[in-house]
């Protein structure tokens, strides 16, 4: 039921956004379609159960996206600098990062965040260890250094609404 509501609300919002106007016809059709899609897809989206629904959720999301956006811009300037430097300035290595997040959605979200931030690209997840390609592994290749440099900032934010 909780999953059904999450999907239905999500689809309904997307519907209204794409419709672009708030007429009665759009709202009613949107609600019906949202309910139908949610009913059909809820058994396949067990991932959504990992989200902790609290009144604080929007706050946590906003804080996460703020951290994320800064990291994304930083990532781009960083990569741009490496790309245009005459001799590509890279010291790549594959490192392993241990995550404290236990849920699948949590790990997925963390892996995606890592991919979009400076110099790191998630390659694989096995258990609670993420394999990450790091374009500049000078801070240290062992798990402690890598975890601190790559994952902890996002983990702190994600723990607010994911387990």
């Amino acid at each position: 039921m909780r999953r059904f509501a999450l999907i239905a609300v999500g689809i309904f919002i997307v519907w209204l956004a794409l419709a672009g106007r708030l007429t009665l016809a759009e709202v009613v059709t949107g609600a019906l379609v949202a309910a139908g899609v949610a009913a059909l897809s809820r058994h396949h989206l067990a991932l959504l159960d990992d989200i902790r629904l609290t009144p604080m959720l929007p706050v946590h999301l906003a804080r996460y996206f703020w951290t994320f956006f800064i990291a994304l811009v930083g990532a781009n300037l960083d990569v741009a600098r490496r790309v245009i430097s005459p001799k590509p300035d890279i010291h790549p290595a594959l490192v392993e990062v241990r995550t404290a997040l236990t849920s699948d959605l949590g790990k997925l979200w963390l892996a995606n965040s890592i991919t979009l931030t400076p110099g790191t690209l998630s390659v694989d997840v096995v258990g609670d260890v993420l394999k990450v390609h790091w374009i500049d592994a000078t801070p240290g290749r062992d798990m402690e250094h890598a975890t601190r440099a790559i994952a902890e900032k996002f983990e702190a934010r994600l723990k607010g609404f994911l387990s």
């Binding site: 990532a75 590509p88 690209l121």
Partner: peptide, 21 residues
Amino acid sequence: GIVRMPDVFNRLQAGTKAATL
């Protein structure tokens, strides 16, 4: 970046981030 980087991982780094922003 995709042209200049030495291997598939570094190319993805350049491609993904710059393309997203």
